[in-house]
C-alpha cells in the first residue's frame, strides 16, 4: 500500500508537470535530434541572426523597454521568459501535496531558494553540447555564439552547458524530472515533507532505470552542483547590476536574487 501511495504521488506530480511545462524533455529531445520534420527551430548563430529570429519570440508579457538595440531587446525578452517560467514553477509548487498548507512565509522561502535551481534543471533537457533551445523550442541558440559575446555575458551560460551535458547522461524521463523538481522545491528548510517525495523519486528511479546503479544517489548529488551554479549565477547578475548602468532587471527576478547568496 505504501508503494501504491508513492506511485500515485508520482502520477499526480507528472500530471502537474505536463500541465505547467508544455515543452517536455521528450519534445525537446525530438526537436534537438531533428525528428520534428519541417518544424526545425530557427538558429541563432551570430548577431545578424538575432533580428531575423525576433518573429519567433512570442513571449507574453514582454517588457516594453524603449530601445532599438536588438541585443537589449533580446536580453529583456529573456528576462520576461524567465519571469514567466518562475510563474509556471510557482503553479507547479502549489500542486505539490502539502505545499499550500505551509506558512506563506515558508512557501516564499522555499520558492526563493529553489526556483533558480529548478529553472536550471528544466533547462538541461533543452541543451546539448552545441547549443540550447529557447522560446518554447522555436529557436536554437548555438553555444559558440553565446561564448562569443563580450564579457561578462560570455561567462553566463558556459557553466550551465557543462552541468547540463553531464546531467543529461543520467537520461531521466519526464516522470523522473517531475519528482526531482518537487524534491528541489521542498528541500529548503522544511524537514518532513521532502521525505515522501524523495522516497517516491527513489522508487520511481528503481522502476524506470533498473540497470542504472546508484542513480538516486547520483541525482541527489546534482543538487550540490546546482547550488554552486546558482550562487555563481547570482553573483554574476549582481556584478552586471553594478557594471552595466543601462541594464534593468525584472522586478520579480530582483526579488528572488536579492539577499539570496
Amino acid at each position: 500500500p505504501e508503494a501504491a501511495d508513492l506511485r500515485s504521488l508520482a502520477k499526480l506530480l507528472l500530471e502537474s508537470y505536463l500541465k505547467y511545462f508544455p515543452l517536455t524533455k521528450a519534445k525537446a529531445r525530438a526537436i534537438l535530434s531533428g525528428k520534428t520534420g519541417d518544424n526545425a527551430p530557427f538558429v541563432y548563430h551570430d548577431m545578424k541572426s538575432l533580428p531575423e529570429g525576433e518573429r519567433f519570440i512570442n513571449c507574453v508579457g514582454l517588457v516594453q523597454e524603449p530601445t532599438d538595440e536588438v541585443q537589449l531587446r533580446f536580453f529583456y525578452s529573456c528576462q520576461s521568459r524567465s519571469a514567466e517560467a518562475v510563474r509556471e514553477v510557482t503553479e507547479f509548487a502549489k500542486s505539490i501535496p502539502g505545499f499550500v498548507g505551509l506558512d506563506l512565509n515558508d512557501q516564499v522561502t522555499l520558492l526563493k531558494y529553489g526556483v533558480i535551481e529548478v529553472l536550471i534543471i528544466m533547462w538541461a533537457p533543452l541543451m546539448n553540447k552545441d547549443g540550447t533551445l529557447i522560446s518554447y523550442g522555436q529557436i536554437f541558440m548555438t553555444r559558440e555564439f553565446l561564448k562569443s559575446l563580450r564579457k561578462p555575458f560570455c561567462d553566463m551560460m558556459e557553466p550551465k552547458f557543462e552541468f547540463s551535458v553531464k546531467f543529461n547522461t543520467l537520461e531521466l524521463y519526464d516522470s523522473d524530472m517531475a519528482l526531482f523538481l518537487a524534491v528541489i522545491i521542498l528541500s529548503g528548510a522544511i524537514e518532513e515533507l521532502p521525505e515522501t517525495v524523495s522516497t517516491s523519486l527513489e522508487l520511481q528511479l528503481k522502476l524506470n532505470h533498473p540497470d542504472s546503479l546508484q542513480l538516486f544517489a547520483k541525482v541527489l548529488q546534482k543538487m550540490t552542483d546546482l547550488r554552486q551554479i546558482v550562487t555563481d549565477h547570482v553573483h554574476l547578475i549582481q556584478l552586471l547590476k553594478k557594471t552595466e548602468v543601462d541594464m534593468c532587471l525584472h522586478p520579480l527576478l530582483q526579488e528572488i536574487m536579492r539577499d539570496l547568496y
Binding site: 507574453v60 508579457g61 520576461s80 519571469a83 514567466e84 518562475v86 510563474r87 510557482t90 503553479e91 502549489k94 506563506l104 512565509n105 512557501q107 516564499v108 522561502t109 520558492l111 526563493k112 522586478p251 520579480l252 526579488e255 528572488i256 536579492r258 539577499d259
Partner: peptide, 21 residues
C-alpha cells in the same frame, strides 16, 4: 519577507497572469 517579496506572495496567493507579471 512579505514586504520584500510582494510579487512572489501574489503569485502564491493568486494565479497571476503573464501580462500582470
Amino acid at each position: 519577507l512579505k514586504e520584500k517579496h510582494k510579487i512572489l506572495h501574489r503569485l502564491l496567493q493568486n494565479s497571476t497572469s503573464p501580462v500582470e507579471l
